[in-house]
Design a protein around this nucleic acid. Structure first.
Length: 464
RNA sequence: GGCGGCGUAGCCAAGUGGUAAGGCGGCGGUCUGCAAAACCGCUAUUCUCCGGUUCAAGUCCGGACGCCGCCUCCA
């Protein structure tokens, strides 16, 4: 079945053609680990997870790489978040390295909780300094660099198609920068490949290089690490929409100069999660919500995953706790469906199964249309002609992509004591001894469980 | 100033030329010993507004208004 993806390079939905049949190489720009990931950041990773699951659903072998940026912007004094980190590090008597490790661990914890399949490779920037140096040497050899004021810059004026991804207008006159210009740059679009000039004398992440002791520019890491693990030409590169004009633009410039050919076939970008006034979530704006914040408020991480799936990845999504509650209610209903469906045992109807499976497949292959895919799921469940077995097997099939753990989530065994109480209550009800039945129900409730008398039998649910 | 995007019901949100998916919420009903759940029905004559193209427009074109993002680290 055809797979269509919106390629930022062409701004169009294109039919996906892999470089190697049935194989796909994906690179995702990961997190900069100087703070917790906020739920907006996490949207990007649920998106890349849906992408990889979609490919697997279509029978592809996926090789997914997601980097961990643990160097590169840590000394940028324009980042107000940085200062807090430095202070925090000092207060906690930790090194930058320890801080990076801590937030990396927290990040991976978030990924796991969101049921995101951990990428095959999660390379750390600091483990790949030599690869970056080699890459910069290649760029230098081709004559696209210059050094000034202690830093080595990439000379964008020499690259005729610089800015093609973002369709930048390279008229320096019209480019107004909102911050003080780096006076060493020959052109405002030029960027640093290697720093030896830095603001904080206490900076501890330093490496020797042909250009002096220092550290790499941010963009280099993605070029160096992706080529190491995916080759010099690979299928898909993903990231947030904010990366288009600078980060990805510069990655392309460096890589295509270094390798001398086209670098990435498809560029996919997710839009932002926004809050109340349609504003983007940002640490500087005090509207920074973590996954843990949601959990503390009584939500399950997968409630948030469902919430994200309800909107298309290329559109703004408005977050609010009311909206998250709506998602939570929907997930709850889905889990109830599963419990009921598991009580009936019948063979799936192959014709109907195939029909809906194809429909779901079409939606997910159409630029990852998860809202449509979810509506197929609801359509299946609400269908009054489909057998329970058909519904359950379709639901389990769809969940391979949705990743909501619908069928496995709450199958834990009930405590013996509870089973006994439930059994006794059923017995009492059969004998119309409702007084005893209610008494037993009260006991069950006290143990934190809810009894539901469904037509398919008694269902016991743990209460939250 | 440049670039990009958005404006669909009470809320979230699909739909990019053929007559408004889905979820949440709400209302009414059925069922049930009760409760809950479940089930059934209803919940946008209309897609910010104004023009235009077309047999036909949330959907294309032009304009207005409103909102957001990027151009600085950023998912």
């Amino acid at each position: 079945m055809e797979i269509k993806l919106t390629n930022t390079m062409s701004r169009e939905k294109e039919v996906f053609q892999p470089i190697k049949p049935n194989k796909v190489n994906i690179y995702t720009c990961g997190l900069t680990v100087y703070n917790y990931a906020h739920i907006g950041n996490l949207r990007a990773y649920v998106f890349s997870d849906i992408l990889r699951r979609m490919f697997e659903y279509n029978g592809f072998k996926v090789n997914h790489v997601m980097n961990i940026t643990d160097v590169g912007h840590l000394t940028d004094d324009q980042d107000s978040g940085e200062d807090k980190l430095e202070k925090g590090a000092r207060r906690e008597h930790k090194t930058v390295w320890e801080i990076a490790q801590y937030y990396t661990d927290e990040f991976i914890k978030d990924l796991n909780q969101l049921n995101i399949i951990i990428p095959e490779v999660m390379p750390k920037a600091t483990d790949h300094i030599s690869e970056m140096i080699e890459l910069i040497k290649l760029i230098e050899k081709r004559g696209f660099t210059y050094s000034a004021g202690g830093n080595l810059y990439f000379d964008t004026t020499q690259l005729k198609d610089y800015g093609k991804l973002a369709r930048l207008k390279l008229d320096a006159e019209k480019t107004r920068t909102r911050v003080e210009e780096d006076t060493y740059k020959k052109n405002p679009f030029d960027f640093v490949l290697w720093f030896t000039r830095y603001k904080y004398s206490s900076h501890s992440m330093l490496w020797d290089s042909p250009w002096g002791k220092g550290f790499p520019g941010w963009h280099v890491e993605c070029s160096a690490m992706s080529s190491k693990y995916l080759g010099n030409h690979f299928d898909i590169h993903t990231g947030g929409i904010d990366h288009i004009p600078v980060h990805h633009t510069n990655e392309i410039a460096q890589s295509e100069v270094a390798f001398g050919h086209k670098w990435v076939n498809y560029w996919l970008h997710n839009d932002f999660l926004v809050i109340e006034d349609n504003q983007k979530m940002a640490k500087s704006k005090q509207n920074f919500l973590r996954l843990q914040t949601l959990i503390d408020r009584g939500f399950h991480p997968l409630d948030y995953r469902y919430f994200l799936l309800g909107a298309h990845y290329r559109k703004n999504l408005l977050f609010s706790f009311d909206n998250l509650q709506a998602a939570k209610n929907a997930v709850e209903k889905l889990r109830d469906w599963v419990m009921r469906l598991k009580k009936v045992e019948d063979e799936p109807d192959q014709t109907a199964y195939r029909e809906y499976q194809q429909q779901f497949n079409r939606e997910i292959n159409d630029d990852l249309n998860t809202p449509r895919a979810l509506s197929v799921l609801w359509e299946v469940l609400n269908h009054d002609q489909l057998s329970g077995g058909t519904k359950l097997s379709l639901l389990e099939n769809f969940d391979q992509v949705l990743g909501l753990n619908l069928s496995t989530g709450k199958s834990e065994e009930l405590p013996e004591q509870l089973k006994l109480l439930v059994g006794n209550r059923d017995e009492a009800r059969n004998q119309k001894n409702f007084k005893l039945a209610d008494q037993l129900r009260n006991e069950i409730t006290r143990l934190g469980y809810q009894v539901i008398d469904s037509p398919e039998g008694t269902i016991v649910k743990k209460m939250k």
